[in-house]
Simulated scan of single mutants.
Amino acid sequence: MHSPSPLPVLVGFDGSTAALSAVHHAAREALRRGCGLQIVHAFGWPVILPPFHAPYDQHDQGPRAAMLDLLARTAHEVRADHPLVPVTTRLIDGSPGGVLVEASGEAQLLVLGHRGLGGFAGLRVGSVATQATAHARCPVVVVRGDHPPEGAPIVLGTDGSPGANRAAEVAFAQAQLRDVELIVAHHQPAGSSSAFWATAGDAGALGAGTRHPDVKYRTEVVSGDSVASALIDLAYRTAAGLLVVGTRGRGGFRGLVMGSTSRGLIEHASCPVLVVPAPQDVN
């Protein structure tokens, strides 16, 4: 009896440069995980303004056919670069946020570019990214910066909350897949004891560490005007290849997804940002 195929890595695609970077990031993730890649475009008909009687062109197949063609060509390029990764494409009618959240229920990871156009316009302001990170049924990566070098460490922001502990599991698994060091970061609010905040998230990190004994990790207490600025600074200083956070936390990480912290990370981090949903957020 054959075991079921692993869930694919899902990537949102709109034809933009940022989306193409996300596709290649997603393909590398699929290769590490030994699963397929699914490239998805959320299709919405453009608003048609007068005049409504444009000249007929038999060679114009319309925006839907054009996007299907672009999806096919992109999949062909990915297969050429990553021949071991099975690649499929989907064009789904609907708004980008809703389409991606719904499709994330059948994926192990959702990948987005940090800016988009067409169906994904407004991503930079956080409309699609915020909706996806808040409601997706799997972890979400927002791709930022250049492709990090092999061996770049991973930074995990944690505070010991259940959401942060789940993020720790994902971060350790990522560090094991990439064979890189993991830096477990705790934010120290102004005027508080660094010793307290250094131990606040140790239980989750230590638990995940015992389940991934091959992962080398260290803890670091970071300070800054905000959680986002502290994590962004640490990721930059360490030339991190990935920054991992949970969707919900306590203390400095409370309200991570819907507040300024997530927008700050998505907008200004020097590397891809991986947001892991809290256990109660996963249906």
Results as ranks from 00 to 15, higher is better:
3 S>E: 14
4 P>A: 15
4 P>C: 08
5 S>G: 12
6 P>N: 02
9 V>G: 03
9 V>R: 01
11 V>R: 00
12 G>D: 00
17 T>G: 12
19 A>F: 03
22 A>R: 06
24 H>L: 09
25 H>N: 06
26 A>C: 07
26 A>N: 00
26 A>G: 13
27 A>T: 02
31 L>C: 07
33 R>L: 14
37 L>D: 04
38 Q>S: 11
41 H>M: 05
42 A>L: 01
42 A>V: 07
43 F>D: 02
43 F>S: 01
45 W>S: 11
47 V>N: 06
49 L>T: 09
53 H>Y: 14
53 H>N: 15
54 A>P: 11
55 P>D: 07
56 Y>S: 12
62 G>H: 07
63 P>Y: 01
66 A>M: 12
67 M>F: 10
71 L>P: 03
77 E>F: 00
81 D>W: 01
82 H>K: 00
84 L>P: 03
85 V>N: 01
86 P>Q: 02
89 T>Q: 04
89 T>N: 02
91 L>M: 12
94 G>P: 03
98 G>W: 12
101 V>L: 11
101 V>R: 13
101 V>K: 09
106 E>K: 15
106 E>N: 15
107 A>H: 07
108 Q>W: 10
111 V>N: 03
117 L>N: 03
120 F>A: 14
120 F>T: 14
121 A>N: 05
122 G>F: 04
126 G>T: 06
130 T>G: 15
132 A>Y: 04
134 A>E: 11
134 A>L: 14
135 H>V: 00
141 V>F: 01
143 V>E: 08
143 V>N: 09
144 R>C: 08
146 D>Q: 14
149 P>Q: 12
151 G>V: 08
154 I>E: 00
155 V>L: 02
157 G>D: 06
160 G>H: 03
161 S>I: 07
163 G>E: 08
165 N>T: 05
167 A>W: 04
170 V>S: 07
170 V>R: 06
177 L>W: 00
183 I>C: 07
186 H>Q: 13
188 Q>G: 10
188 Q>V: 13
189 P>G: 12
189 P>K: 11
190 A>P: 11
190 A>C: 11
191 G>C: 10
196 F>T: 15
199 T>V: 11
205 A>Q: 04
205 A>L: 00
208 A>N: 13
213 P>L: 03
214 D>W: 09
216 K>T: 15
216 K>V: 15
218 R>W: 08
218 R>C: 10
219 T>E: 13
221 V>W: 00
222 V>W: 00
222 V>L: 01
225 D>Y: 04
226 S>N: 08
227 V>N: 09
229 S>F: 09
235 A>G: 14
237 R>L: 13
237 R>I: 08
242 L>D: 04
242 L>H: 05
244 V>C: 00
245 V>M: 09
246 G>M: 10
253 F>G: 08
256 L>V: 12
258 M>S: 12
260 S>Y: 05
262 S>I: 06
262 S>E: 11
266 I>Q: 10
277 P>K: 06
277 P>I: 08
281 D>P: 00
282 V>H: 04
